[in-house]
Amino acid sequence: HNLTITQGKLFFHYNPKLCLSEIHKMEEVSGTKGRQERNDIALKTNGDQASCENELLKFSYIRTSFDKILLRWEPYWPPDFRDLLGFMLFYKEAPYQNVTEFDGQDACGSNSWTVVDIDPPLRSNDPKSQNHPGWLMRGLKPWTQYAIFVKTLVTFSDERRTYGAKSDIIYVQTDATNPSVPLDPISVSNSSSQIILKWKPPSDPNGNITHYLVFWERQAEDSELFELDYCLKGLKLPSRTWSPPFESEDSQKHNQSEYEDSAGECCSCPKTDSQILKELEESSFRKTFEDYLHNVVFVPRKTSSGTGAEDPRPSRKRRSLGDVGNVTVAVPTVAAFPNTSSTSVPTSPEEHRPFEKVVNKESLVISGLRHFTGYRIELQACNQDTPEERCSVAAYVSARTMPEAKADDIVGPVTHEIFENNVVHLMWQEPKEPNGLIVLYEVSYRRYGDEELHLCVSRKHFALERGCRLRGLSPGNYSVRIRATSLAGNGSWTEPTYFYVTDYLDVPSNIA
């Protein structure tokens, strides 16, 4: 807008934040220059609390790290170098490059900038070799853009010569660093050979998330399962459950009422301010606690030095998902009996873990797994792929695949051998790939016309006998059925096997 004052003059007093240069501009645009008398524009009460600059400061050096910015700028000295009290560095987070010096300023003089007072450097006698002032900004957020400017702080001049310097606002972004852990990993099994893994992005990506790394490792069953005799009275049979499938998407929606109208769909109840505040506090606490764990609990591995020492970490090797089922080394339970199943799973520490690289999504279907087997899954978020990966501390989750139908069934015939004193040795093959492992066998036998009897055969007993022995049988026709019990439950009964026990007292003698 054009402003013209045809008559009258300007009068400025007691404006401590208004620089004289701005008042002189007002004289020019209003056409009143030359009308004012000496005392109409006070030299001592206008701009006496402001830094009124008329020179431009330029930054000469900028260096960044993930949490620091090192700045240096060209030296500046007023005509009387004693008038320079120091520099004021202003900075704040700036997602967009549209910041002005006066953003967030209120009537009390406060604003949204963080201000650092910096002492002037030592003055050199040689004007050509003056030290460049600077400042190291610490405690910054990774991968965050900051708006920065600097200006001088000078003393009051009796001659009211307006001098000083100020830089333009520059924008500097800190470097990326390792992201925080992925949030809320959930693993479920939808079949006997697959596990579905879902997660949420890290709360602090500290860069642009480029991919996720998912490692999985087959877990050995508890050692007590191999040692305890679950045929003993009072000892509860062990059981394991597989990871249940995901709930429906509708039930997972946030901010939804727990109660549904019987007449149909209901609208979600909005969260109160107290609920939102509580969630923010919980989120802040979780982030602080995660940072504490990362800094205190997890110790970084030592990389190899120039002395030739090897990095103890196993090298990563990509495998196809079809090879995942046989990740671990199978060892027989008892070496003397080769027909026992290889369900003991000690994992070799030198073995390469299978892994998958996930790009542009937060889910993965891990296939080719062994049925009813526990897996430990390790999830890392990465925001750099080359020249070397920059990934987060791992988040861990466990899951067990679903049982395989008929995996616990005894394959092959049940054979028998009759000894003296009416002892019958029953023999059968253990299931080759049971659900988890076989903890015991149930032997059901009966003599024709009598009630059915049951015998429990422990895992250890089966390994020693290759089956079991029935003792003290009365003469007669017998039928026997056997079924295995694994961590997933009972298998199917075998087809009945028949044998006849004679009275050993009636056996004919070869003595003449």
Rank of each mutant, 00 (worst) to 15 (best):
S486D: 01
S262W: 03
E442A: 05
D311H: 14
H371Y: 11
G308L: 08
S251T: 13
N208Q: 15
I418P: 07
W493C: 01
A263H: 05
S223D: 14
V296E: 10
S492L: 11
T328K: 12
T210K: 15
A263D: 09
L225G: 02
E282C: 11
G264E: 04
F337K: 06
H211R: 05
Y448L: 08
V334K: 15
R481D: 00
E217R: 14
I438D: 01
S304L: 10
R481Q: 03
Y375W: 01
S315H: 09
V345H: 05
V327G: 09
H416Q: 09
S239K: 15
M402P: 09
A399I: 11
E417Q: 13
E258F: 14
K253S: 09
E247T: 08
E362S: 08
L487E: 03
K233A: 15
F419V: 06
K357V: 11
K406D: 07
P238C: 09
T494K: 03
R376Q: 03
L237C: 14
P434F: 06
G436F: 10
D229Y: 14
S341A: 05
F355M: 12
V327M: 11
R316Y: 02
V443N: 00
E265Y: 01
V334P: 11
R390G: 14
D506N: 15
T328Y: 15
H425Y: 09
Y498G: 07
V334E: 06
C266W: 14
G449C: 05
L369A: 04
P300Q: 12
C468D: 01
Q252D: 15
R446S: 03
V296I: 06
S262I: 14
T333D: 09
N326R: 08
F226D: 04
P403D: 05
S284G: 10
T272F: 05
P354S: 12
C266M: 05
K287G: 07
S344H: 12
E433I: 14
L487G: 02
P205K: 00
R400G: 07
K236F: 13
F499W: 02
K460L: 06
K287F: 14
E465V: 14
D250P: 09
G412P: 09
E404H: 12
A399C: 11
H211W: 12
V457K: 05
N421V: 11
W493Y: 15
T307P: 12
V457W: 06
Q252L: 12
D385C: 10
A407C: 01
E452A: 11
S203E: 13
S398N: 05
P332F: 15
T401G: 01
Q275M: 11
Y478F: 05
C391L: 01
G322L: 13
R319T: 05
E495A: 09
I418A: 10
P244I: 12
S363H: 04
S344C: 05
K432N: 11
T502Q: 05
G374D: 10
P434I: 05
E290Q: 14
E362V: 13
N421C: 03
R469E: 11
P332K: 04
G234C: 13
S268T: 15
C269T: 13
E281P: 04
T241Q: 13
D291R: 07
V299A: 15
P475L: 05
V359K: 12
L232Y: 10
W242S: 14
A405D: 08
D323N: 12
A488V: 10
G322A: 11
L232P: 10
Q219A: 06
E388T: 08
E282Y: 14
P300H: 12
R370Q: 14
K302C: 09
S342R: 14
Y441G: 00
Y375L: 09
R400S: 09
H461G: 10
N208S: 12
V331T: 15
G306V: 11
E452N: 04
G436P: 04
G374W: 04
F226K: 07
E433Y: 08
L232W: 02
D503Y: 10
E442M: 04
T386L: 15
R471P: 08
E350S: 11
H461V: 09
K302L: 10
E351F: 04
E417F: 06
F372V: 01
E310K: 01
D204A: 15
A335Y: 06
P431S: 04
H425L: 07
P387A: 13
S398Q: 14
R353K: 04
H454T: 09
L453P: 03
L437K: 07
N422L: 08
V393H: 13
L369F: 03
A407D: 05
D311E: 13
H461R: 10
E258R: 10
G308R: 11
R353I: 15
R316L: 13
G449N: 06
V457A: 03
S474A: 09
R466W: 03
T288L: 11
V414G: 02
F337I: 09
L426F: 04
E249I: 06
P338G: 10
E247W: 06
Q219S: 05
E279D: 13
F215S: 10
N435Y: 00
L426D: 00
E351I: 11
Q252I: 08
Q252V: 10
P434H: 05
S239G: 03
N255P: 14
V480T: 06
Y441V: 06
E378P: 01
Y478S: 00
N326P: 13
P244S: 13
G325E: 06
L237W: 14
A336W: 04
Q384I: 05
F246R: 05
Q219K: 07
R400I: 07
M427L: 08
N477R: 09
T502K: 06
K460M: 09
R459Y: 08
L277P: 08
E389N: 11
N295V: 11
N421K: 12
C231A: 03
I276E: 11
S367H: 05
L437P: 05
P346K: 10
V331I: 15
N383Q: 06
H416R: 05
Y478M: 00
A263R: 08
Y230C: 09
S315D: 08
V358S: 12
S223P: 15
S492W: 00
N339M: 06
D385Q: 14
V424R: 04
Y396Q: 05
F215V: 13
L455T: 11
R446W: 04
Y478H: 10
S257M: 06
T343F: 09
K361T: 11
A405L: 08
F355G: 09
Y500T: 10
S344N: 06
Y259W: 10
I410Q: 04
E221L: 09
R390H: 04
Y445L: 14
M427W: 07
F462N: 07
P349T: 08
K278G: 12
L455S: 12
C231E: 03
E420V: 05
G306F: 11
E433V: 13
R370I: 14
C266L: 06
P354Q: 13
T502A: 14
P244Q: 12
C267F: 13
E227N: 12
K361M: 10
R353L: 13
L426R: 01
F499K: 00
N339S: 10
E433K: 13
R483N: 03
R483H: 04
D291Q: 11
Y448K: 14
L455Y: 11
T485G: 01
D229T: 08
F285K: 08
P270A: 13
V358W: 05
F226E: 13
P413K: 11
Y259I: 03
K432L: 13
P270R: 09
V327P: 10
L369K: 01
T347M: 14
N383A: 09
N510R: 15
P238K: 08
E290K: 06
P245H: 10
Y504L: 11
C382L: 00
T340M: 14
T401P: 03
R376S: 06
L235M: 10
A263Y: 15
R319F: 06
D506F: 14
L225V: 09
G306R: 14
S268V: 10
A330R: 01
L379N: 02
S283M: 15
V457I: 08
T494I: 03
E281F: 14
K460S: 12
Y445D: 00
D273A: 13
R319V: 07
R240I: 13
S342A: 13
R466D: 08
L437Y: 14
L235Q: 08
S344Q: 03
Y396I: 02
S248T: 05
N435C: 03
G436A: 13
H211Q: 06
P238S: 06
T288P: 10
P338L: 11
K278W: 09
F289T: 06
P434D: 00
P300C: 08
E420P: 11
N490Y: 15
R390A: 04
Y292H: 05
A309L: 13
A381M: 01
V393L: 04
S223L: 09
A395P: 02
E417P: 03
